[in-house]
Design a protein around this nucleic acid. Structure first.
Lengths: 192, 192
DNA sequence: GTCTATACACCGATAGAC
DNA sequence: GTCTATCGGTGTATAGAC
């Protein structure tokens, strides 16, 4: 995965490093990973292609870093939601107003072939689910729980449905979405 | 989308046409859409690259046809399930033992940039959901329905959860999957 | 139907100057 | 830090012979 010979590299986290990740995110979202090339990234931020390889060893590394930054951002949003008075409601808001599903689809597809990315996605899902389950378990324990729905199952149902209806909405499907959202919101309201 | 000049084309549905779609499916699944090239398809079935362009105008056309064939196959499986004594149970079996989620991820990503494919995916989702809702509504109407769960919401929850846990299983996540499956199966069992 | 041959664009990645 | 220049490879798609 890493170049055999150490190469002079640019600093991780510098402004231009971030702007390259911004460009990568934008291209992934708008044109797909087939269009995510070092030349496209460079052109978008107005530098020469060579510079991309000063900041990233390979294109795969740029992709992994792009996901990693996004994952950190999302985990921070969830973490903040947990500190709220109504963590369950807040964490659901995070799930509903989340990353563009086109971007999610691209990363999922890429994770099938970039091992490092697959590992990052794995960690991200586990960590975010842990937080969701924490919020759910806390809310449900506070009151008498008359359901038999385990918190982890509730988390999986809600997040996978949220992803599915977002993606469907993007291709023009709307049937049933309001019903799904109402069920989830009514469920959350039971623990307020 | 189409070449301006009409070109001599090979017959749709011929054995070699199918073997090209087989190759495309295999490459998409194992290596991702970035590796789905006319050269790769040709090599896999032992012909020259030029022949791919005899059967398909463009690579996008090959991709769309690959999805279309897959969608027809899946819709037939569901249609057969509807004719069964326990259609709900059968249609759930179809959802659980469905296409490799890596393939699904690739088509989702591709649908973001190939308009024709997006339209095919749209039609496929609507048609398959229609069948799922039919099976659900029929089962739930046969008995006194003491739930407030609309059939279309049940269909969305179940199918999106099935997709999510398949995909998670592929990257090594297992937590909560058994719980989700048990809930769905218990729900189905109520209407037997 | 299937082939050889090819045009032309773009890709990842590197060497090395300033 | 950012550049010019370049290598070897691969992509889509076409022309036209057999």
């Amino acid at each position: 995965m890493q170049s055999p010979v150490a190469r002079r590299m640019g600093p991780k986290g510098s402004p231009i490093w971030h702007s390259m990740l911004d460009a990568a995110e934008h291209i992934l979202c708008e044109e797909g990973y087939g269009a995510l090339t070092s030349r496209a990234v460079a052109e978008r931020i107005g530098v020469k292609q060579r510079l991309v390889y000063y900041y990233f060893r390979t294109m795969d590394e740029l992709i992994v870093e792009t996901f990693r930054r996004l994952a950190i951002r999302e985990k921070e949003r969830m973490s903040k939601a947990l500190a709220h008075d109504l963590p369950l409601r807040e964490i659901w808001e995070v799930c509903v107003r989340t990353t563009d599903t086109r971007l999610v689809s691209e990363f999922m597809a890429l994770a099938n072939r970039i091992e490092e990315l697959r590992s990052e996605v794995h960690d991200y899902i586990e960590e975010s689910r842990r937080m969701q389950v924490f919020a759910l378990a806390k809310a449900m324990a506070g009151r008498g729980d008359d359901t038999t729905l385990p918190p982890i199952a509730a988390a999986i149902f809600a997040t996978s449905a949220a992803l599915a209806i977002h993606r469907e909405a993007e291709i023009g499907i709307r049937a049933g979405h309001a019903e799904v959202l109402k069920i989830i919101e009514d469920f959350i309201a039971r623990w307020d």
